[in-house]
């Protein structure tokens, strides 16, 4: 593999922390301004899956209906992260400190050779500008916004994920911004990355995340007067039962599932 996934060793499988190859973290390599709170080092619980076969209510005496599996996203990592991740994290945090925004980065997750910075939504635009313009960072290309809806993570249901590519340094990072359902506003990065114009419109269309500062936030994929935001988890898939000769098959979202 190329050196984009900087945190990989020859075995190719890198989990979250791997202090064995990088020694004891010291002050020089620790990234100041990227706080690693104790709770971030635990896995981030974003919900749970209940029941085994999608069975709800009475009728299932097997016990599978009572199974509960917590869904936990990979935990935050402590510096050093390995490879060029530290360089980027250091440049980012020192750049933010210069601009007087040390608390912009909430958490850093290194998982499967990819680094994700969780950014506070009020600071997104400045972080993006810093990432694009700073010489050692130079993430010129933003590959769009991807929305994710975690209904189980109260207070941070809607996530917007930005993938950034630095062509100068041949690197990729990911930014993740969370906002609550009650107040789904995130700063728009269109002033910094004009390519996100349609991507943000699409994320608004499908998730209801309002991007403040977007030139024209309107529906792009669904018809203009469509109610609701289809890719949210509380929006039904909308299938209809299908008639075959001698049977009717229910739509996919009501069929038996394996949780």
């Amino acid at each position: 593999m190329s050196d984009v996934s900087g945190g990989r060793d020859t075995a190719g499988r890198r989990g979250t922390n791997d202090l064995s190859t990088s020694g004891i973290p010291d002050e020089a390599t620790a990234a100041p301004g990227v706080p690693t709170r104790k709770e971030d080092l635990q896995h981030q619980v974003v919900g749970s899956r209940e029941g085994m076969f999608g069975v709800r209510g009475s009728g299932d005496t097997s016990g599978y209906g009572g199974l509960v599996a917590t869904v936990a996203m990979p935990s935050g990592s402590e510096p050093p992260y390995g490879g060029w991740f530290d360089e980027v994290a250091r440049a980012l945090s020192s750049g933010l400190a210069e601009r007087g925004l040390p608390e912009a980065v909430e958490k850093v997750v290194v998982h499967r050779g990819e680094i994700t910075f969780f950014i506070r939504r009020e600071r997104l635009l400045e972080v993006a500008r810093l990432l694009r313009d700073e010489e050692s960072l130079r993430f010129e290309l933003c590959l769009g916004v991807s929305g994710v809806h975690y209904p189980g993570e109260t207070g941070r249901e809607l996530h917007a994920v930005y993938h950034l590519l630095s062509m100068t340094h041949n690197r990729r990072i990911r930014l993740e911004v969370a906002c609550p359902d009650a107040d789904p506003h995130i700063q728009s990065v269109v002033p910094v990355y004009p390519t996100n114009d349609w991507h943000e419109r699409e994320t608004w269309d499908f998730f209801g995340i309002v991007f403040d500062g977007h030139p024209s936030l309107t529906r792009i994929e669904m018809p203009d007067d469509w109610p609701g935001h289809p890719q949210r988890k509380d929006y039904p898939l909308g299938g209809i039962p299908v008639e075959y000769k001698g049977a009717t098959i229910p739509p996919p979202e009501t069929r038996r599932t394996y949780n």
């Binding site: 899956r49 869904v71 996203m73 998982h111 990819e114 994920v161 599932t257 394996y258």
Partner: peptide, 27 residues
């Protein structure tokens, strides 16, 4: 396993990537 990944390829039209998020399940 739970987590997210993004591995882009060079399609005839440009960079095509899939942001995959898993919650540890079968879907």
């Amino acid at each position: 396993p739970a987590g997210q990944a993004y591995v882009p390829v060079e399609s005839p039209r440009g960079e095509l990537g899939c942001h995959v998020v898993s919650d540890g399940g079968t879907r």
